[in-house]
Simulated assay, not measured.
Amino acid sequence: MLSDRSTATVRATLPAVGAAMGDIADLFYEKLFAAHPELLRDLFNRGNQASGDQRRALAGSIAAFATQLVERPGTRPDAILDRIAHKHASLGVAPEQYEVVHTHLFAAIAEVLGDAVTPEVAAAWGEVYWLMANSLIAAEERLYAQQGVLAGAAWREWEVTARIEETKDVTTFRLHPADGSDAPAFRPGQYVSVQVELPDGARQIRQYSLSSAPGSPLRSITVKRVRGAGTPDGEVSRHLHEHTRAGHLLSLSAPYGDLVLDDLDAPLLLASAGIGCTPMLSMLEHLAGEGHDRPVTVVHGDRSPADHALRTDHVRLTEKLPDAEAHFWYETPDAGHPANRTGLVDLNSITVWPGTHAYLCGPLPFMRAVRTQLLEAGVRPADIHYEAFGPDLWPTAP
């Protein structure tokens, strides 16, 4: 927790720092990449940098952390920290990199805020930073230890054993460790990072949910091709779609991610949109394999049945559960599709069981709308879990 002196200083300066955090984040990344261009080339997502999403996520996470420190002393925003720690571990972030971040972040703060950054203000915000950084370092060390890997040595070669075209824009890659050893254990809903070398020599990294269950002999990732011609957007998914075939090798991290089933005795609701179905498929396959007999409600929204990746598996796995039902909404449905399942997902037309634990994955507007409907149906906020593909902008989204 913050010292009393720093708490007073942070509380007094939080409005000014929070208002300037976007400019601070912009300047921070500019300074960081000027000093360490290899970080943009081989660690940070160039698409998220180009769009500004990573800058907004950084600003939001620091502001949220500082706000909780001063408003609820003695507590930490563990949900934010856990999500960041899992993402960092999947990238192989090492403890010494936090010192590099500190150097350039505080140079940016001093430049943006100028004379307002007195020694007292710098010390107080330094305390905030290191409370956050040391919490993340400790959490990441635990995650690395659980997976039996060292920080900065996260990558392992996997062989592509099959490539399956799910839709015109979605492909599943089946994988196994290239050295023939056992695949690491994971929990349904988790993801792996995939690192590929692009034509310009950059080794870019993206995260993809494991779409198979932990008990499957092979691992699968299902990748949607992101179309953003002329920008870094989708450069890894395009590379995988255009160049990766059976027999090729991919560099994968160990599995990470905090969107995992936490109470199998409660009624479950698995809600997804688009390619957000992938962690839900892993959860469904796991539940079916375990003979799960509690209520499960499956919800999915997509452009059309033809765009609904893994639709057959979505139906098949739901039907294997004795007390489960699936509801699919399509913006452009096939003939005969129910009229009340046309358009955007609307939970008002289905039963949300008391005590439901909900798991969400999809575009941010979809997850915000579904969360609002769940809260209106009486689901506790603590029982609504989500996975954001890319930087987590939920805390700062309008």
Rank of each mutant, 00 (worst) to 15 (best):
P363H: 11
N348P: 00
P333G: 10
N348I: 00
L360W: 10
N348L: 00
I350V: 14
L347P: 02
N340V: 06
C361M: 06
F328K: 00
V345A: 06
T351W: 00
E331L: 14
G355D: 06
L321K: 06
L321W: 11
V345N: 02
L321G: 09
A335V: 15
A358P: 05
V345S: 02
A358L: 03
V352P: 02
V352F: 01
E325K: 13
R341A: 12
D323K: 09
V345T: 10
T356C: 04
Y359G: 00
P338R: 09
H357A: 03
T342N: 03
D334L: 08
N340S: 14
P354N: 06
H337W: 15
A335S: 15
N340Y: 14
D334T: 10
P363D: 07
L321A: 07
V345C: 01
T351K: 08
H337T: 14
P338F: 07
Y330M: 12
E325I: 07
S349T: 15
N340F: 09
A339D: 13
V352R: 05
H357E: 07
T342E: 10
D323V: 02
H357R: 10
Y330N: 03
W353Y: 03
L347C: 01
L360T: 09
P333N: 12
P338A: 04
L344M: 10
L344Q: 13
A326P: 09
H357T: 10
P354A: 02
V345Q: 03
P354K: 04
A326T: 14
P363G: 11
Y330P: 02
N348W: 01
G355A: 08
V345D: 01
S349Q: 12
H337M: 14
E325W: 08
L360V: 11
G343I: 12
L344C: 03
A335D: 15
G355C: 07
V352M: 02
W329Y: 11
T332W: 06
I350D: 03
P354H: 04
P363R: 15
P322F: 05
G343W: 07
C361G: 04
D334E: 13
F328E: 13
Y359W: 06
A335W: 11
R341N: 04
G336I: 11
P354F: 05
C361A: 14
Y330C: 06
G343T: 11
W329A: 05
